[in-house]
Computed example of a mutant assay.
Amino acid sequence: MAEPDLLLSRGRYRARLAAGSEDIAAAQALRTLCFRTAGTDSDAFDGLCAHVLVEQAGSGVLVCCFRLLVLEGGSSLRNSYSAQFYDLSRLERFEGKLAELGRFCMHPDWHDPDILRIAWGALAGLIEAQDVKLLFGCTSFAGTSAVPYLDTFALLRQRHLAPAQWPVLEKAPEVVRFAAELQEAPDMKLAVQAMPPLLRTYLAMGGWVSDHAVVDRQMNTLHVFTGLETGAIPEARKRLLRAVAG
C-alpha cells in the first residue's frame, strides 16, 4: 500500500510531502547546508507551506527539498515570502491561483540529474492538481557579489525580462540593477554556466525574471524574482512533466 504522503517514485528516488516536525527539521538542515546560513535556516513561512522531500529510495537519504505556498489570487501576493523583497503590486491584478516555490535546493554531494527531474515531476503534479496559473519565487545565486554573474544578468536582461504587463518593481534596500551594471553583450557560454539549474529550468519552460537582483546578506545570496505562467509552458514540456509525474 502506498504511503499517504508519497507524491512520486521513479528509479532510485522518491518525492513525498513532509509528514511532521522531524521531516521539516530535516529539510531545514539541508537548506542550512546548501545556503550556508549562520544558523538554522527557518522562518515563519515554514509553518504556512507544504514541504516536499526528495529522497534516495533505498536509504531514505534526503537529497533535495523545496516548499510550496499556494495563494488563491494576486491579491494574496502581499502574504508571500517574495513580497518582502519585491514590489509585486502590478501582479496583484493576476487572476487565478498562484504558487510560490521556495528554498529549492539539492544536496551539494549529489549531482544526479534525475533528482531535479523527480523534483519537477512532483511539483508539476501539485500545481496541476490545484490548477495553479502562475508559479513564482526567488531564484538564488550563491554569494552576494554580482561579478561572477554579470554575463548571466546581461543575458537575462536581453532575453528573459518580465512581460510589460507584469513588471516587478524594486523594494529591497540593496539591489543590482541590470540596466545600470551591464553594458556589454554577454558571453553566452559563461552566462549559461553561471546560471543556477533551477533558473535554467524555469526559462526553458517560458519563465521570466525581474530586471534586478536583490542582495540578500542574511541568506548569502543574490536572487531574482522568477515567474512562470503555466499556460505558457510549451506542450512538449508539459508532456514530459506529466510523464514524469505519472
Rank of each mutant, 00 (worst) to 15 (best):
M205D: 02
D211A: 13
W208V: 03
T32C: 09
Y13G: 07
F94E: 06
V214E: 00
A57K: 13
G125L: 11
G73C: 11
A38P: 06
F141N: 00
N220Q: 14
R93T: 15
T226G: 01
Y149I: 08
K97R: 15
D23I: 04
F94C: 05
D216M: 01
E3W: 04
G96K: 00
G20R: 05
H107T: 05
V224P: 04
L98K: 02
A172Q: 08
K171T: 07
V175N: 07
R14N: 05
D112A: 04
A15K: 00
L134K: 01
A180F: 10
R217P: 02
R14K: 15
R16E: 12
G58K: 15
E128F: 06
G47H: 12
G231W: 03
Q218K: 08
V214S: 00
S80L: 04
M188W: 09
E92Q: 13
S82A: 14
G60Q: 01
W120V: 00
T32S: 14
R237H: 15
Y86M: 05
Y13C: 09
P197W: 09
L150G: 08
M205L: 13
M195S: 07
T152K: 02
A119G: 08
G207E: 03
L101Y: 07
A99L: 02
R217Y: 12
M205Y: 08
A162V: 03
L71Q: 07
R36V: 09
A180I: 04
P163S: 02
F85H: 15
D187H: 12
I233T: 06
F104A: 06
A57Q: 14
A27M: 08
S9R: 13
R12F: 03
Q84A: 14
L53S: 10
V244P: 00
M219G: 02
A232Q: 13
V52Y: 00
V54Q: 00
Q84L: 13
L116V: 07
A213L: 02
L7R: 09
Q158F: 04
E3K: 08
R67V: 00
L6G: 05
D109M: 12
A179I: 02
R31I: 07
A180T: 08
G125C: 13
P196Q: 06
P196F: 08
A232S: 13
L88M: 05
L98H: 01
M205F: 10
V176T: 07
A99Y: 01
N79F: 10
K238F: 06
V63S: 06
E184I: 12
G121Y: 01
R78V: 15
L123K: 05
H223D: 01
P4Q: 11
P108Q: 11
L123A: 12
A27L: 08
Q56E: 15
L53Q: 09
A180N: 12
G227N: 04
L150P: 09
W120Y: 00
A172H: 08
M219F: 13
K238M: 14
I127K: 05
V168G: 05
M205E: 04
G143R: 07
F35S: 07
S210T: 03
F45M: 07
S89K: 13
L198W: 04
Y81F: 14
Q193G: 02
R200N: 09
R78K: 14
V147D: 15
T144R: 08
P186S: 12
R200T: 09
P167N: 00
A50Q: 12
I24P: 01
A172L: 06
